[in-house]
Amino acid sequence: MSEVNTKASSFDFRLWLADHSIDRLLLLAVPAFLAMLAFFIYPSFYGAYLSFHPMDKSGALGNYQSFFGDPYMRESIWNTFRIALPVSLINVFAAVPLAVRLRHKVRGKRTINTLLVIPMSLGTVLVAEGLSMYLAPNGWLNRTLLATGLISEPVQLLHNFWGVIISLIITGFPFAFLLTLSYISGINPKMEEAASTLGATSWQRFRYITFPLLTPGLAITFCLSFVLAFSVFPSANLLGNPAGDSHVLAVAAAQAIFTQYDYSMASAISVITGVLELAVVAAVLVMRSRLYSGSTSGGKG
């Protein structure tokens, strides 16, 4: 090392990089980093800065005081959790059995995969629009149920809690499924075979082998699903009751901007949303770090 540096007259950038174990190709990431800085990191900090400068000049914490002082606003935190937590749990746990099944060669696997993934490519707004027709009191679902005599009057699935839940499951499930499938595919199927020769039934193989190896992946899947569902906006607006039990944080922030023109308050709500999300993700990751999270291939490949 000193050998290179003592010949300072012929400073060689390549050798300097190698000496500090920097891969020159990493320099290609600089533009991407600058873009991140300009479009994500700077706005985030600027938003945080704005949130501490309320429009009514009520002091640095003014926005936060008025947010937490208002029961209607406080309620929006609870509303968001009430939607995001069950939705992400349902998505993750419904994805597991399906992914376990579809990991092997199954006839029609490609068709099933396609059907499962289509809703994701449609986007939340289109799905929400479609659902608002389908679930309406005179929509297909209610008409079918009425015709078969299963119900005597239309079920109310729109403009309330359930509409939001259904639409988030439809759009969030494919995402959770694809992630889970990729985690499951990373588990060497030989391990299940080994377990079966040791006498484990298919349930025991899942319980003792596949599931423990999958949990770290499920934790990540849960976090991502949760973050997606936590920032719910289109379906809460279109299918929920944005003034009542679907008055989630994203709706509150949007209203602050578009009805009160209070940019600073909206920023404060965004910061609160971010902090809550981070808290949940951090809690899940802490739990995950206590689990086994090493190789899932079983021995040298």
Binding site: N188, K190, M191, E193, A194, A195, S196, T197, L198, G199, A200, T201, I209, P212, L213, Y292, G294, S295, T296, S297, G298, G299, K300, G301
Partner: peptide, 20 residues
């Protein structure tokens, strides 16, 4: 009979040990 009820022990080429 399914493998779990055959009572055959098997040693795999890549060992297939349970990593956890």
């Amino acid at each position: 009979v399914p493998p779990e009820r055959r009572d055959f022990g098997m040693v795999f080429q890549n060992y297939a040990l349970f990593p956890h």
